[in-house]
């Protein structure tokens, strides 16, 4: 289990981390959300010893993280990092060996991952000869090739098309199922919502919200009613309700927790509505609210 406890780090007058704490358990896939400058990348770099925190502790299974421990971690930095002029397979084997695999094991694993990612025919290509999507795949293999116990990915879905995103999400889900602890940051909240059971939202160097996605949504004091057909005259019958969107025969209405489901059903009946959905706000709104507060 990765444990980050009250981490602090300042760069000059800028406080990048301000008492940030979180945990990632084996087999857990934790989404790290936060606006730009929230401290997500600094936190990740701290795990890999690329910055030294001013205060706080980062530990793995209860012990401080040293070089030997770090070699059991996998990292995908935000701005991709590979040797552009070296062959794909060559550098995957090199990185695997740096992380402790022997040569034949590293070669075997590299070949297996390349085949799995449909990149076998590009094994001897230089990285800078690959398309953006394929470079991203190689980058992911580089983070995973040594079968790490903890994988940290900084914006792994940035710049990927939906098919590539889905593919990458599938790979990560498989890994988590096999027991790997995964921490990743993303601005694509829909992907996070689909992929993670739990998220952490950071703002100004602190964790401002954390928990299961469903619980975080449910904890919001906002609800939405989405209706199909009929009129919207019922909206004025509910205190604080307001129409946020209307198009075609559909309407989306925001309201508070003070209107019970029974009360809503009561005002809706007789307004000609054929279908309605009552739901908490999406993760993106929870995220925005947390960032605002």
């Amino acid at each position: 289990m990765l444990s980050v406890d009250r981490l602090e780090k300042s760069f000059g007058t800028v406080k990048a981390l301000d008492g940030c704490s979180l945990e990632v358990k084996s087999g857990q896939m934790l989404g790290l959300l936060g606006p730009n400058g929230a401290g997500k990348t600094t936190l990740m770099r701290g795990v890999f010893g690329l910055i030294r925190p001013d205060a706080g502790v980062i530990s793995w299974n209860g012990s401080p993280i040293d070089q030997a421990t770090r070699r059991r971690f996998g990292y995908m930095p935000e701005e991709r990092g590979l040797y552009p002029k070296l062959g794909v397979r060559w550098q995957l084997v090199y990185l695997a060996r740096l992380h402790g695999m022997n040569e034949s094991e590293a070669e075997r694993t590299a070949d297996r991952w390349l085949a799995e990612f449909s990149l076998s025919d590009r094994a001897s290509s230089k990285v800078n000869e690959l398309s953006h999507g394929n470079q991203q795949r190689v980058q992911l293999i580089a983070a995973l090739i040594h079968e790490p116990e903890l994988v940290i990915l900084d914006e792994p879905f940035a710049g990927l098309d939906p098919i590539a995103s889905e593919f990458m999400a599938g790979v990560l889900a498989d890994l988590a199922e096999k027991g790997t602890a995964i921490l990743f940051s993303s601005h694509q909240l829909d992907v996070v919502e689909d992929l993670c059971q739990e998220v952490v939202i950071m703002h100004r160097g602190r964790v401002v919200l954390e928990g299961a996605v469903d619980e975080l949504r449910a904890a919001s004091d906002t609800r939405y009613v989405e209706t199909t057909g009929g009129s919207t005259s019922w909206v004025s019958d509910l205190p604080g309700a307001e129409i946020v969107h209307r198009s075609g025969g559909r309407a989306r209405v925001r309201l508070g927790l003070d209107s019970s489901l029974e009360a809503i059903a009561g005002v809706l009946s007789g307004s000609g509505i054929t279908q309605f959905v009552y739901e908490p706000p999406p993760l993106s709104e929870v995220f925005r609210e947390a960032a605002k507060s």
Binding site: G49, Q67, Y75, G81, Y83, L95
Partner: peptide, 17 residues
């Protein structure tokens, strides 16, 4: 410069001091 500019240093420094 190359290792720093393309961030591969961060990847490598996970395994080697």
């Amino acid at each position: 410069v190359e290792e720093k500019a393309n961030r591969v240093a961060e990847l490598v420094l996970g395994a080697i001091t």
